[in-house]
Structures are given as structure tokens and as C-alpha cells.
């Protein structure tokens, strides 16, 4: 058996021993992650026409003013950080 295979056999044997010894119990019973979010996600495909579709002179692209638009939302609560990615993660 190669060194590589040893890592598999020893690890899986340890997993079985550890798991069956009951250490897995807590994890098996309840995942400790975040709770569910927005389970009822709205369906997307439908056959209505939007009520505001007939408003405005819409053959224009609407992009020319895009650079005047600024974000106005909860991103205002995210502070610090430079434009460089911080350390950590990847």
C-alpha cells in the first residue's frame, strides 16, 4: 500500500471510530449553521405584462445617465477596507 492510500485508510478508520463513539451525535442531530432564509422564494416565470411597461419613451437606451446613479442602501453600513482585497479567505 502506498503512502497515499495510508492516509485514506487511517483517516476513514478514525472517522468511523470517532463518529460511532458518539461525537457525531450533536452534528447529526442538528446542523449548527445559519437557519433558513426566505424559503418561499417567489416564482419567476409568468405570463403577465408589467403595468409600467407602457410608460415613457422606451426606445432610448436609458444608460446614458447610469454614471450619475449612486448606491443608496445598506452598503452605507459597510465601512473601512481599501479597494484592495484584504488578506484571508482564498
Amino acid at each position: 500500500m502506498t503512502q497515499n492510500k495510508t492516509i485514506v485508510t487511517s483517516t476513514l478508520a478514525a472517522v468511523v471510530a470517532l463518529g460511532l463513539a458518539g461525537n457525531a451525535g450533536a452534528a447529526e442531530k442538528k446542523a449548527d449553521g445559519d437557519k433558513c432564509y426566505g424559503i418561499v422564494k417567489s416564482g419567476k416565470n409568468d405570463c403577465k405584462t408589467l403595468s409600467n411597461a407602457c410608460a415613457g419613451h422606451s426606445m432610448e437606451d436609458g444608460q446614458k445617465d447610469a454614471f450619475l446613479v449612486v448606491p443608496k442602501g445598506t452598503c452605507e453600513r459597510i465601512v473601512g477596507g481599501s479597494l484592495e482585497a484584504p488578506q484571508g479567505g482564498k
Partner: peptide, 14 residues
Amino acid sequence: PSIDLDRETGCRVL
């Protein structure tokens, strides 16, 4: 909901 990017690091998510 405040987050300080100078104090919080990246993450790996499952």
C-alpha cells in the same frame, strides 16, 4: 448591520 472591513476578514462558505 454595520461591518468594518478593516476588522473582518474573508470567509469560506458551504
